[in-house]
Nucleic acid binder design. Structure first.
Length: 846
RNA sequence: GCCCUCGUGGUGAAAUUGGUAGACACAAAGGACUUAAAAUCCUUGCCCAUUUGGGAGUGCCAGUUCGAGUCUGGCCGAGGGCACCA
């Protein structure tokens, strides 16, 4: 028999697909489109199992949709700007450009080994000037629409490296490379005004019907809408009438106010810049660490300004004004009124500084006289007291009334606040898209003229300098406008999240010289019909992309899109056991083996290995498996099959050698059975033919349904089942060869999305045309059905009956079953519950 | 601290959305073929009973129902998100 040579077959089909460009897509308005997109990778140099899973899921879908007749767009590109290139460049003395290029080539070759049906003609790379020049245009477009602005903000500053660190580069308050304590430093940086779209980004979540609820909820919380009001407090100064505006969601607790707290960055705090005590206080605040968690746990401290604010309803009450470390400048107004009785933070603060604690909300059933606040604030619902016109109202009503009165007396107004912050896009880095801005000698920021774009990254940089290499590159930094005016370039580059916020548009017009996208292309292809990627991008990347679409659509009649991704699927991670040697060092899976007693030992010195829990594959824990090695051993189809078979795609999957090896064996079995069927001598038609036909029809139905629902693991089970049936029919000569061949052909078509090389090889011999088999709904209907017979809710037998049999006949037949009769003995039937074609339950009385 | 999701055999998991729990697969044990091994195929799968069969059973405790893995309430455990958001 012809042997199935995985390597030859896979190579053969990959060559055919590539030379015939079977996966290239062209705009064709007569055909229905399907845009299938997986999150593009960062070109680290090697694909990992996470990529394999992501792209296998996407490819199965793309191939399935193609077979169904859709015009499928399935592109791939590279998220190729970013810090690792700079680090690698320093370590290996290789230019980021060359390092990136080399990595892209290596990963592209690996992706091709997987047999993905990608349109490589549309390949893009974000570090390519042909890509980022359009991004610079978008930046200027946004600048002109006033969606981009500059403001001072704090960054993690590494004084040793003279550079800005990303949050994840700060470990225990120290720079990851230098180990030196990180400082908070104020820098003037560029921001995208994503806040402007807060309400719309929130509202539109509801329309994203095919997004996981989890992701929508995460975005909703991230946007964080809250209802409340602003209240103006007058500062108690003799001549001046200064005001402090505070934001609160609990205006009902206004009568419990006992202090005002301002953020360190509040304008009023500026008045104390030269005050020695305030300087000390600021220093104290900056000590508490920079991570958000550390800030959250830090003790609440304040600086007493010795100023007082007048209570808006009780002029006699003067509230001390503090500057406090727990008040954030970029939320609300940067100022709060403290109501210690009903806010834990305020209570902690009040206890520390011996401030008044007056409860104004009490639990329903508790007498006001007995209600005391000690160390725990009361934040539940309740009844207002000590609160004049709010007395005896419930919290909800009291909030409404408080806002009402405050508005009427012009003390403030109803206000909705979002916690979503504007997107800081400045990065003090070399390997990113240059921000197309220059500064004239007055320091004004001017957008670069379109004709002067792109602003190319200079190649001749010294990456070993401390700080931003662009900053230290005078030839590039100091330049002239076409008018001859001397200007300084913006040396910051853009956050790489900007690169990935519109790449899906570029895929529609990947080669267009003049524009980042062409409207006729996106009118056809957009939105992305199915986006697939890791849940780790649930917030930032997806929210930024949603913002970017709105920013482009803003004041632009030609661009009618706001939501880029019609459907979203987030796949789980690939996990593997972890191993440690006796010294507690991590070991790679191929450094260990099983000994004769079934224990894991190290390969070289046979020492005991501690097996840890299965965790998502990561280089640091060395629990990675190299996809290419696996492809070499088992073939791409086996890896794809295994990736889809073991767990539902949205859940984590355990990598297992046995699993892959089982996939490999099954592929061999399919091939063997395929040949047996094709070589089968003609036998006359048999009564079992209809059994097989029906089963195949059912399989087509199930596989189609399960593919539509992303239940790939169940699809695999469907295929196993039908294989087992075919195997039985072949071995036992149950079916005519004609039926066998006809029906088997359909199964090979079903395999195309899953194991494309094997499937094409099988199909080739019987039918050059590939198609998605259709099922006959009439054939799904069974003539007989199995009815479960219960006595008092317990199963006592089953009955094969024609579909839609009447209850009476089922009752009679049931009682004929020995075991049923036995259980009905000595008791009388009170009633029976009959569920058509499913079950009958006799309820008895002893 | 707040919010969300998930708990089903030794393992990964199915279950027509309230109707035969454990499909399909991995692992294990036993068997067949073989001089032997590999490969392949078959059987078994918790407790009681020799078999027909009976019982328990989907994290735990209650509830609704003729009937609950599925619905409701409470508890326990695991994972994830946010984190001084006023």
């Amino acid at each position: 028999m012809e042997r199935y040579n995985i390597k030859d077959v896979e190579k053969k089909w990959q060559n055919i697909w590539s030379s015939k460009k079977t996966d290239a897509s062209t705009l064709d308005k007569k055909r229905k489109k399907f845009y299938c997109l997986e999150m593009f990778p960062y070109p680290s140099g090697k694909i990992h199992m996470g990529h394999v899973r992501n792209y296998t899921i996407g490819d199965a879908l793309a191939r399935y949709k193609r077979l169904q007749g859709f015009n499928v767009l399935h592109p791939m590109g590279w998220d190729s700007f970013g810090l690792p290139a700079e680090n690698a460049a320093r370590e290996n003395n290789l230019h980021p450009k060359d390092w990136t290029k080399k990595n892209i080539e290596a990963m592209k070759r690996q992706l091709k080994l997987l047999g993905l049906s990608l349109d490589w003609d549309r390949e893009i790379s974000t570090c390519d000037p042909e890509y980022y020049k359009h991004q610079q245009e978008f930046f200027i477009e946004l600048f002109k629409k006033k969606l981009v602005y500059k403001k001072d903000t704090y960054v993690n500053w590494d004084p040793a490296e003279q550079t800005v660190l990303a949050n994840e580069q700060v470990i225990d308050g120290k720079g990851w490379r230098s180990g030196v304590a990180v400082e908070r430093k104020k820098l003037s940086q560029w921001f995208f005004n994503i806040k402007k779209f807060s309400q719309d980004l929130l509202n539109a979540l509801e329309k994203l019907k095919n997004w996981p609820d989890k992701v929508k909820l995460m975005q909703k919380n991230w946007i964080g809408k809250s209802f409340g009001c602003e209240i103006n407090f007058q500062i108690d100064k003799k001549n001046k009438k200064e005001k402090i505006k505070v934001f609160t969601t609990r205006p009902d607790t206004i009568f419990g106010a006992s202090f005002i707290a301002l953020s360190i960055d509040h304008p009023i705090a500026k008045n104390f810049e030269n005050n020695q005590d305030f300087i000390k206080f600021k220093l104290e605040c900056s000590k508490s660490g920079t991570t958000e968690e550390a800030l959250a746990v830090a003790e609440k401290i304040g600086f007493n300004t010795n100023l007082f604010a007048i209570h808006p309803f009780k002029e006699k009450i003067k509230l001390p004004i503090y500057i406090a470390n727990f008040v954030l400048m970029d939320y609300g107004t940067g100022a709060i009124f403290g109501c210690p009785a009903h806010d834990q933070r305020d209570l902690d603060f009040a206890n520390k500084y011996k401030l008044n604690v007056l409860p104004v909300v009490r639990p329903n059933e508790v007498d006001p006289k007995d209600f005391k606040i000690n160390n725990e604030a009361y934040t539940e619902d309740g009844i207002l007291f000590n609160s004049e016109f709010l007395n005896n109202l419930k919290v909800g009503k009291a909030i409404e009334k408080a806002i009402d009165v405050i508005a009427k007396k012009k003390l403030g107004e109803k206000k909705i606040t979002f916690r979503l912050k504007d997107w800081g896009v400045s990065r003090q880095r070399y390997w990113g898209c240059p921000i197309p801005i220059v500064y004239n000698n007055k320091g004004e920021a001017l957008p670069v003229k379109k004709k002067d774009l792109p602003i190319l990254l200079p190649d001749d940089v010294d990456l070993n300098v401390k700080g931003n290499p662009l900053e230290k590159h005078p030839k590039w930094k100091y330049t002239k406008l076409s008018s001859g005016e001397k200007v300084i370039r913006e040396t910051d580059t853009l956050d790489t999240f900007v690169d990935s916020s519109w790449y899906f548009l570029r895929f529609c017009s990947p080669k267009h010289k003049k524009y980042g996208y062409e409207i006729k292309d996106i009118n056809y292809w957009m939105p992305v019909d199915q986006y697939i990627g890791g849940v780790e991008h649930a917030i930032l990347h997806l929210l930024y992309s949603r913002f970017f679409m709105r920013a482009l659509a803003f004041k632009n009649k030609n661009f009618g899109y706001t939501e880029p991704f019609e459907s979203l699927f987030t796949q789980g991670m690939v996990c593997h056991e972890t191993y440690k040697n006796e010294k507690g060092q991590w070991l790679y899976p191929d450094e260990i083996e099983k000994n004769s007693e079934g224990y894991y030992v190290t390969k070289n010195d046979k020492k005991k290995v501690a097996v840890g829990p299965s965790e998502s594959m990561s280089k640091s824990k060395k629990n990675t498996i190299d996809p290419e090695e696996m492809i070499n051993m088992y073939g791409a189809d086996s890896i794809r099959w295994f990736m889809l078979s073991d767990s539902p795609p949205e859940r984590d999957v355990q990598w297992s050698q046995e699993g892959v090896s089982a996939a490999f064996k099954f592929i061999q079995k399919i091939w063997k059975l395929n040949n047996e069927i094709l070589n089968k001598k003609d036998t006359s038609s048999n009564s079992s033919d209809v059994v097989l036909k029906k089963a195949v029809n059912k399989t087509v139905y199930n596989v189609t349904k399960n593919l539509d629902n992303f239940q790939y693991n169940v699809v695999i089970a469907n295929i196993h089942e039908i294989y087992n049936l075919f195997h039985d029919h072949v071995v036992n000569n149950k079916t005519s060869s004609k039926t066998l061949k006809n029906e088997w052909e359909k199964i090979t078509m079903l395999l195309i999305p899953l194991t494309p090389h094997l499937a094409h090889e099988c199909c080739e011999k019987v039918n050059k045309k590939f198609y998605w088999p259709k099922y006959d709904p009439k054939m799904l209907k069974e003539e007989n059905c199995t009815i479960v017979i219960q006595v008092d809710g317990r199963k006592r037998g089953v009955l094969e009956m024609p579909v839609n049999s009447i209850e009476k006949s089922i009752v009679i037949k049931s009682k004929e079953i020995e075991n049923v009769a036995k259980h009905l003995e000595n008791s009388s039937i009170i009633k029976n519950v009959y569920i058509k074609n499913k079950l009958i339950n006799f309820i008895t009385k002893k």
